[in-house]
């Protein structure tokens, strides 16, 4: 993608480094990279395997002048990080890319073997020579895509999608594949369901570390001894606790980028929790994280007139 390479080179005149993607020669899919020089920028790519949300690196790099290549969904995280003062708008050059939806590479690999050749024809997929329906391997976040084009950018590369990428597959109305199942469960069954799911957790904290909005980074309340919010054992009880600490701390911050669920090595449907919370927040406060730089995070404010829950008596 010459256009992208040129844009990154141009951006590098103004910034220290640019966050983008390169092609991993071993697997042929994209992997996150940092471009420090124009020479390095030659390797930059953007395609439907660029699933990673690069905004996760911004808090650690705060204070440095950066460029970041961002899809529409990634840009929402950038917006939210700026609101939370974890990134400075004036330090950032956002290179927006038009996104036509992203593939869940891990899902493909787990089914067909790591490194299987992925040939994305745009309307269909060929995986190791076998043709597969593309929708089956779309990143789940694409099904709820709010905006395929970034909301904020300094430079734009590629073709504008002109709307949510998810329109390909029904737009943002498509819920989590497990939400209907959850809906049908009685409370005790829900508890058993989650207990079962979290029994697999190995507490690797990949969900936290890939989350752009888990910006406390190295010192996290999930692991502090004092206060002792969560025990140190690897078991369903503590894992569920730490995940709900995370959910709670991401209220009004989660942009639904899906990285936590993608990164989870044991397949816990973490986005089912996040989606439910995001829906509740939209319903209660009319707020969607990442919509606007001028927005006030919903948990940091209140409305005397509108917030009338619990006042019915």
């Amino acid at each position: 993608m010459a256009d992208l390479v040129t844009t990154i080179k141009q951006t590098l005149k103004d910034v220290e480094l640019v966050l983008g993607w390169v092609r991993d020669p071993a697997t042929g899919v994209a992997a996150p990279a940092r471009f420090h020089t124009e020479e390095e920028a030659e390797a930059a790519v953007f395609d439907s395997t660029c699933v990673h949300n690069l905004a996760v690196h911004l808090p650690r790099l705060k204070g440095r002048r950066l460029g970041i290549v961002a899809k529409g969904c990634d840009a929402r995280s950038v917006v939210e990080l700026i609101i939370e003062h974890e990134a400075e708008r004036e330090d950032l050059k956002v290179i927006g890319v038009g996104c036509g939806s992203i593939l869940d590479v891990k899902k493909i690999w787990r089914r067909f073997g790591y490194g299987v050749e992925i040939d994305d024809r745009g309307d269909s997929l060929e995986l190791g020579g076998e043709r597969g329906p593309r929708e089956d391997f779309l990143a789940r976040k694409c099904h709820g895509c709010l905006e395929a084009d970034p909301d904020i950018y300094d430079l734009f590369v590629g073709e504008s999608a002109g709307g949510p990428a998810g329109e390909i597959s029904g737009g943002r109305e498509e819920p989590h594949p497990l939400s209907a199942m959850l809906e049908d469960l009685a409370p005790a069954e829900r508890r058993a369901f989650w207990r079962e799911q979290f029994s697999r957790c190995i507490r690797c904290y990949a969900c936290r570390e890939v989350c752009p909005m888990c910006f406390c980074r190295d010192i996290c309340i999930m692991q502090t001894q004092v206060p002792h919010w969560a025990g140190g054992e690897v078991n369903a009880r503590e894992s569920e606790m730490i995940q709900h600490i995370r959910v709670s701390h991401l209220a009004g911050r989660c942009t639904g980028c899906g990285e936590c669920e993608r990164a989870c090595p044991v397949g816990i449907p973490l986005m089912l929790l996040m989606d439910e919370q995001n829906r509740a927040i939209e319903d209660m406060f009319g707020y969607r994280a990442g919509d606007s730089l001028r927005a006030r995070p919903p948990m940091q404010t209140f409305s005397i007139e509108k917030d009338l829950w619990g006042d019915e008596e």
Binding site: L185, E189, F193, W194, S248, E276, Q277, A280, I281, M284
Partner: peptide, 11 residues
Amino acid sequence: ELLKRMLAVRG
């Protein structure tokens, strides 16, 4: 209120 709704999700 948000917590109440999320607790329901957990069962």
